[in-house]
Design a protein around this nucleic acid. Sequence first.
RNA 1: GCGGGCGUGGCGGAAUCGGUAGACGCUGCGGACUUAAAAUCCGUUUCCCGAUUGGGAGUGGGGGUUCGAGUCCCCCCGCCCGCACCA
Length: 849
Amino acid sequence: MSRYNAKETEPKWQAKWAEMGVFEVKPDDRPKHYVLEMFPYPSGNLHMGHVRNYSLGDVVARYMTAKGKNVLHPMGWDSFGLPAENAAMEKKINPKDWTYANIARMRDQLKKIGFSYDWTREFATCDPEYYGQQQAMFIDMMEAGLAYRKNAVVNWDPVDMTVLANEQVENGRGWRSGALVERKELTQWFFKISEYSQELLDAIDGLKDWPEKVRLMQKNWIGKSTGLQFKFKTNDAPEGFEELEVFTTRPDTLFGASFAAISCDHPLAKSLETNAEIKAFNEECRSIGTSEEALEKAEKKGFDTGITVTHPFHPDWKLPVYIANFILMGYGTGAIFGCPAHDQRDLDFARKYYLIVTPVVCPEDQNADDFTVGDEAYVGPGRMINSRFLDGMEIEDAKAEVTKRIAADGMGEGVTQYRLRDWGVSRQRYWGCPIPVVHCEKCGVVPEKKENLPIRLPEDVSFDKPGNPLDRHNSFLVCDCPKCGAEARRETDTMDTFVDSSWYYARFTAPHAETPTDAEAADYWMNVDQYIGGVEHAILHLLYSRFFARAMQKTGHLPKKAIEPFNALFTQGMVTHETYATKGTDGRNVWRTPDEVRIADGAATLIETGEAVEIGPVIKMSKSKKNVVDPEDIIDQYGADTARWFVLSDSPPDRDVEWTAAGADAAWKHLQRVWRLASELFDAGGTGTDDDNADLERAMHIAIDDVSKGIESFTFNKSVAALYQLTNAIAKSDADADLRREAMRVMAKLMQPFVPHLAEEVWDAMGGEGLVTGADWPVFDPSKVEDDSVILPIQVNGKRKDEIKVAKSATKDEIEKLALANATVQRILDGAAPKKLIVVPGRIINVVI
RNA sequence: GCGGGCGUGGCGGAAUCGGUAGACGCUGCGGACUUAAAAUCCGUUUCCCGAUUGGGAGUGGGGGUUCGAGUCCCCCCGCCCGCACCA
C-alpha cells in the first residue's frame, strides 16, 4: 500500500488540467456563473489569508461547474500602489520590474495550489493595456460630467510631498513619513459619486445576498438625512455676508435656538481672519481637525464673532454667531443654529458659554410648566412648548410647519443631505494610472485624444528626490495640446488605486478587448454571481465598484443589467495564529515566528537557545507580530490539498480560523487515510448483506445531501464534517466491494471542490472515467436515506429517558401504547397514570406526570 | 455615544419551522500492534454523585411563555466589530 505523495501527485494533475484547458471558458449554451475573489496586491508573497479566500472561491467555482454551470473564475493583480515606489526607493529597483517579478512569483504560488482559474484571462492593473482602457473611460466620464476638477482641502504630507487619504493619516501624522499632516487646498480630480447617493442607497435593499452588516455600513456611509436649509439675516457682518445659510434636521426646535455657529473653514470665518485673535482660533481648530482621537477628547470651544443673526420668526430676536470647533465645513452648509435643550453638543457648548437653554419639546409624562433640561439634552419624543404657533404639536408636525412657513417666506426649503462626498482620485504619485489630460495655456484642461492612449508611465524615472518623479520628467511632461497643437503640459497626477479595482470584474469578461469592455461578453457574463473577500473592503472598494458600474453603464461600457456589479457578496474571516515573544534586553517583546518556537506540554521554548517563550493572544497573521505560516512551507511539507482542507475545515468561512500545527497535521492525516482507504479497495473483493449495502448507500446519499447543502449555504465546515462521516462509513462498511468503490467515486466527486488533487487520484484509482474535475455532481436520491422505522426519544416531563424504534407508518395510538409499555416509562410511572401524553409522530414522545 | 454581531465541553464548532444538546474534528486518557518508536487501528473524553444498573445538573446570569426552550419574550452581564462632533 503506497503512501499518498502529494508532491508528485499535485503537479501531475495541475499539468493535466492546464494541458486540457479545463478552466478556460467562453460563452456557450449552459447557464453562466461568475465567481470572483478579490484580486491580490502583488506584494511578492502569498499569505494564508489569500489561500483561504481563494480556496473558498474555488469550492464555489468547482461545485458550480459540477452542477452544470459555465463558470467564469478569473484571477489578476491589483498592481499599482505605493509599496512599489517604496521598494524602488529602498532597493533601487524600478517599480515595474519589482511588481512584475512579484506577480511571477505569486502566480507560481497560486498555480501550485491548483485553483481553477482561467489563466488566459489574467491581467495586472499596471499593464498599459488595462490602464489605457481606464484612461479611455476617464475621458468618457469627463464628457458625461462624472469626472471633474475642483479646489479641495486635502491631507498633505510635506515630507513625502503627496496627498494622503484620510485612512493614511494616523494621529495627525503621515503613516509613512511621520510628518505632521497639513491641510492644503489643491485642485484635484473628482468622480461625481454624490450624483448617485440616493440610487446607491436605494439599491442596497436589492442586495439580498450581501451580508446585512455590509449593507448597513454602506447605508451609514452614504448617511442620508433630511431637514431644512434656510438663511438667517445677519447683523454687523462683513460685506457679502448679509445672510448665513444653515442646515438642520430639527427645524421644530427653532424656538429653542440660542446661538448660531460656523466652521472655522466657513467663508465668513475666513473673512474675519483679519482679526488676529480669530485667525489664531481658526488655526487652532484646523490643527486638531485631522485626528479623530483628538476630536473625541477635544472640548467644545467657540469664539464669539460679535456678529448676530435675526430669528426668522421674530425680528427683534438676535442670536450670537460663534466660530465653533465642532462644526464641519464638509457637511451641510458648515453652519448651524444651536438648540441646547435638544442636542447634546449644543448643550455642552451652551453650558460653557452661559447661553440660554430653552426646552421646546416636552416629554408626554412631564409637565410643560416645569420641564427643564440639566446636563443631558432631551432628544426623545414629545409635544412642542415655548414655541408660539407650534405649541402642542407633535415633533414631526412641527418640523413640517416650520419648513412650510420658511419656504413660504422664501428663506429656505426642505433638503436632503448626504455624508457621502465626491471621490477625490488625484494622487501625486508615480506608480498609478496617469490621468489622461493635458494643460494648455490657451485651451485650459483638455482630455487626451483616445487614439493617443494609453498614456504610458515613463520607465526611466528616479526616486532620489521626494515627491512625484513625473513632475520632473520632461519628455513625459511636455506634450502637444490635443486641441490646438501648441506645446502643453501633461497632467502628472495619477489615479487612486481604488479606481483600478473598481472595474476589473468587468474587464475579466473580455480581458483582451480593444475597448474597456466587450458588449457581448459583458452581457453574457455580468454580473458577478458570487464575490468573495475581506470585510475590510465593506465600504470603499465595494461602494466605488457600485458607483463605477453605474458610471460605466452611463458611458456605454456596461449593459444596464450590470448596474450592480456583485449579486452576492461573502466576507470571509481571517486566518489567525498564536503569537510568540521573548523578552529583549530592553524588556520589550521580541516577536518570534512559529518556526523558531518549539511547543511541548503547553510550554514554549526557542528552538535555538532553549529560552522560554511567552505564548501570546491568537490574532490575525501579520508580519509585524511574526505569527505567520508561509503557505509555501505548508505546500512543501504536506501539499496544497492539506492547506486547502485545513482552511476549509472547522471554522465556518465567515469566522476567523486559527492555524495550528496540530490542525495541519490532522488535515494531512485525514487525506492520507482517504488515500489508504482507496488503495485498500483497489482490488478488494467480497459481497455484503443487503443491510450492509443499504447502510452504505444511505451514508453516500446523506453525504451528497449534506456536502451540497454546506456548499450552498457557505458553511463549508459542515460539508467537511459530512465528508469525514462518509469516510468513516466507508471504512467501517462491509458492503460489496464494488459498492464501496462506487462510494469512493462518489466521495471523490464530493471532495473535488475541496481537495481536487487527491480527488483526481482517488477517482483515477477507483476506475473513474476521465477527470473528476468537471464531472457531474452526484444526484441525491432521498429514497436511499429513508428508513421504514424511526427512533423516537421518550421524554418524561421534558427530560429524555429512553427511546423506542417504531415503524414509520405507526399511528399515534400505536406509538402511545408502545410508549406506555416501555420499561423505563413503567418504572418511572410506578403504576400511576400519566397526566398527559404528547406524541409528535416522527419527532418525539413526552410523558407528563 | 450610535449601529451591528456574538456568548454551547479542555479547544474549533454541530444542533435554529421550539422536539434525543455536544454531530464532525482537535486535544487528553486507556488499549492493540511493535524489541522500541513512528504510523495505524480500537475504545473513551460535558460536569457531579453512585461508580455496573442508575440519579442529578447543564448552552453567560436572572425571570417568563410552553407538555417541551441553546432556539421565543423581558431584564441584566460580558466580549467582538464598524461608525463616530454629520447639525
